[in-house]
Simulated scan of single mutants.
Amino acid sequence: MPAAPPPLASYVESWHPRPVTDGDDLAPGPAAALSAVLNLPAPAAGPGDPLPPLWHWLHFLTWPAHRDLGADGHPLKGHFLPPVPDRQRMWAGGRCEIAEPLRLGEPAERVAGLASVTAKQGRTGELLFVTERREFRQYGRTCLVEEQDIVYRSGRGGAPHPRELDESAFPHPGDPWQVPLRPDPALLFRFSALTANAHRIHYDAPYCRDEEGYPGVVVHGPLLALLMLETVRRHAPDRRVRSLAYRLRSPVFAGERLTACGTPAGDEAALRVATHREERHATAEVTFQAP
C-alpha cells in the first residue's frame, strides 16, 4: 500500500518569502481596453483620473518566459507561489481598503508581502490557503491596501470547489442594481490577455474537462469581482468606496448568462453574481465613505 503523501504544511514550514517592491506608471491604455472588452463606460481617460476599485489589477503585471510555465499555464516558479508539488490554484477572495483612489498617469509603487499560510482539510482533500498583502502608494501616500486569498492543493484530484471555502449564507433583500453579461470564450481570452493570466481553465475546454474536472471554460474570478463593483459605478457613481470584501463561491462557465446584482443599505451595499443555476456564485460587501 503506497505511503500517504506528506501534509501540505510540511512543504511550507521553511518558506518565508521576503516582501517585494515594484513600480508602474499606470498608463491609461489598460483601463480603456477593459472598458472596450466589457462594453462599459470608460472610467478614466487620462493622467490624474481615478481608477475604479480593483482596476489596479490591470497593472503591475509580470510576464514570465513561456518555458517557465507549467502544464496548467501558471508559472512553475514565483516569489509567492508555495513550494507544493503539482499545484492546483484557485482565487478564493480578498479584501481592500481604499484611502484614496490610484490615479492614472502618475507613478505608483506596490509593496507585496506574504500575510499568512494556513493548511485546512476540505471535502476533496487538503487545502493550503495563502494570503498575500499589497500596499499601493503614490507620491509617498498609501492609497490602497489589499489582501488576496489564493487556495492551493496538490495533485490532480479535481479542483477544490469554492463551497469548501465558505458555507455561510449571504442574505439579500432585493437587487435594484443589475449589470448583465454573457461572457463568451473571446471575451475571456481578451480578459486573460489584459491581466497576464495564462491559466488554461479560461480558454482550453478539453483541459478544463480532462485535467481540472470542470464541464467547460471557467469565467475568471477577478472578472466576477470587477463586475460586482461595476454595479456600484453604474448605479451610484457619486459614492466613493472606502472598503470591500469579496468571496468567490462557485464557478461560472463561458456562455452562461450572468447578472451582477447589488442592494444598497445606507453606507453599505451587498453585491452578488447570479446565474440560472445559482444565486450566489460570488458575493461582496462594500462600505462607502460617509458623505
Rank of each mutant, 00 (worst) to 15 (best):
R233D: 01
R89G: 07
H59T: 04
P64K: 10
M228C: 05
S10W: 00
E146P: 05
F189K: 03
A265M: 08
A169H: 13
P101N: 09
V84S: 07
G221P: 07
P215R: 09
L54K: 08
P162C: 09
E106Q: 14
D49T: 11
P264M: 08
R257T: 10
L271Q: 11
R200K: 13
R110Q: 12
V20L: 14
A108E: 11
S168A: 15
A282E: 01
P41A: 14
E279W: 10
R240F: 03
E100W: 00
H220I: 03
A198W: 00
R249I: 06
R89E: 04
A284R: 06
D210I: 01
E167L: 12
R133A: 15
R239P: 07
T287M: 10
S35A: 15
E146I: 01
D24I: 08
P19Q: 08
I201F: 01
V252K: 08
R95P: 00
Y203E: 00
Y246K: 03
C143H: 02
Q138R: 05
V241Q: 10
V37S: 07
P41D: 14
E256L: 06
L81C: 05
V37Y: 05
A115Q: 15
A27M: 05
F189Q: 05
P162M: 04
A119D: 02
V219G: 04
H199V: 12
P30R: 09
P101E: 09
E167N: 09
P41N: 11
C208T: 06
H199C: 09
P30F: 06
E268F: 05
A196S: 15
R234W: 05
T118Y: 00
L224W: 00
A169Y: 01
G113D: 12
E167M: 08
H172R: 14
L114D: 13
V117R: 14
H161D: 14
A45P: 00
L226C: 08
E212G: 13
L8W: 00
P291A: 15
A3G: 09
G105N: 10
R247K: 09
G70R: 06
Q178F: 03
T287Y: 02
N39M: 04
H59R: 05
S192E: 14
I150L: 14
S154M: 07
P237H: 06
H202M: 09
T287F: 00
A45V: 11
T275Y: 04
A119I: 01
A269V: 06
R239L: 06
L51A: 11
T259F: 00
A99Y: 00
C261L: 15
P75S: 08
H79S: 15
E164H: 12
R182K: 15
L194P: 11
P83G: 12
T142F: 01
R242I: 05
A3H: 04
L144K: 00
P83T: 07
N197K: 09
T118I: 12
E109A: 03
